[in-house]
């Protein structure tokens, strides 16, 4: 059954991403021949894109389970990076271990298509139980900071990101046929990542005033508005192919993803400022750390998920009842 569960629209869109990457690689090598500027970071960035897109595409083509494992692994790397960046207490080693265990459980709820548990596991059960584990250690010095930063990390890197994975198990029957989750997930991920790229490119080319220079000196009104416009157009074009949304619904989805992505991005920027670091890591050459790459997704995934969840009566693959 390799890859057979993906719609032709999803497969063509995946092929389209590779086309875009080939185009980017050609443009950069042409620029490299003519320009005197140093493009090594841009080249490195695109090379890393190749690897990320290949792994992501492969997971999608292999099966839904592989896609879920992919997102689970991204959550793991993100929270590991987060735990390595923030001040932690030696006494809390075992509490952090329990927090790591939340990852396989959270993605298991997705795999089992158990929406009720998926949506409360981290905000309710982890929120209540991790402090209990921490209390058993008995160290009250810095308790609030320790449990606060721990829960914030779980919400951002596991709960939020797992919404992108939950899209994969959604199914909706329209008069024209069945529309399934992989298209929704691809729609979210493509638009979120292209929003980053579009905001960066518009910011570099037209720029204008800085929006919040104290948090992120590279964010300009030109980049922000150019990004919104670009994503609005792409959201409408891809919305009819990959999702059951009409033009207006797609446009609003584009707006949600573009603005949500912006705030997700500067949210992580603020944390980097607070910790006095430039990048969250060195895992992705040219991009920084994994948190630098998924920062926007931590906002767009839950926002887009609840938007589309509200719009249509969804089923999962295993059950026929409405979620």
């Amino acid at each position: 059954m390799m890859g057979l569960e993906l719609d032709p629209a999803v497969r063509w869109t995946l092929a389209g991403i590779f086309g875009l990457l080939i185009l980017a690689s050609i443009v950069v090598s042409l620029l490299n021949r003519s320009a005197e500027r140093d493009l090594s970071e841009l080249r490195q960035r695109i090379n890393t894109w190749w690897i990320m897109v290949s792994v992501f595409g492969l997971a999608m083509v292999l099966s839904r389970t592989f896609s879920l494992l992919f997102f689970g692994f991204v959550s793991f790397l993100a929270i590991k990076e987060y735990f390595s960046l923030i001040p932690t207490r030696r006494a809390d080693r075992r509490v952090l271990f329990w927090a790591y265990l939340a990852i396989p459980l959270q993605y298991y709820w997705v795999y089992a298509e158990w929406y009720g548990m998926f949506i409360i596991f981290i905000p309710v059960y982890c929120f209540l139980l991790l402090p209990v584990r921490m209390l058993l250690v008995g160290e009250t010095d810095g308790f609030l900071r320790a449990i606060g930063t721990l829960h914030w990390g779980l919400m951002t890197t596991v709960f939020s990101l797992s919404h992108a994975a939950f899209l994969l198990v959604l199914r909706h029957e329209t008069p024209n046929g069945i529309l399934a989750g992989p298209g929704l997930m691809l729609y979210l991920v493509i638009l979120t990542q292209l929003n980053d790229v579009a905001q960066y490119l518009w910011g570099k080319s037209i720029g204008c005033d800085k929006i919040i220079p104290k948090v992120s000196p590279n964010k300009t009104w030109g980049g922000f508005l150019g990004g919104i416009l670009t994503i609005l157009i792409l959201a409408i074009l891809l919305g009819t192919i990959l999702t059951p949304m009409n033009t207006w619904q797609s446009a609003l989805a584009g707006l949600i993803i573009s603005m949500g992505g912006f705030f997700g991005d500067i949210n992580i920027s603020a944390i980097k400022r607070d910790l006095g670091i430039k990048d969250t890591g060195t895992l992705l050459p040219g991009h920084g750390g994994i948190l630098d790459r998924v920062d926007s997704l931590t906002y767009t995934a839950p926002l887009f998920f609840h938007y589309i969840y509200y719009l249509f009566p969804w089923h999962t693959f295993g059950s026929h009842g409405i979620l």
Partner: peptide
């Protein structure tokens, strides 16, 4: 740096850190 956080002397449980 970091190995001491991941697995300090006397501990049996490995906790992942970069």
């Amino acid at each position: 740096h970091g190995l001491g956080k991941t697995l300090p002397k006397g501990e049996a449980l490995l906790v992942p850190f970069f």
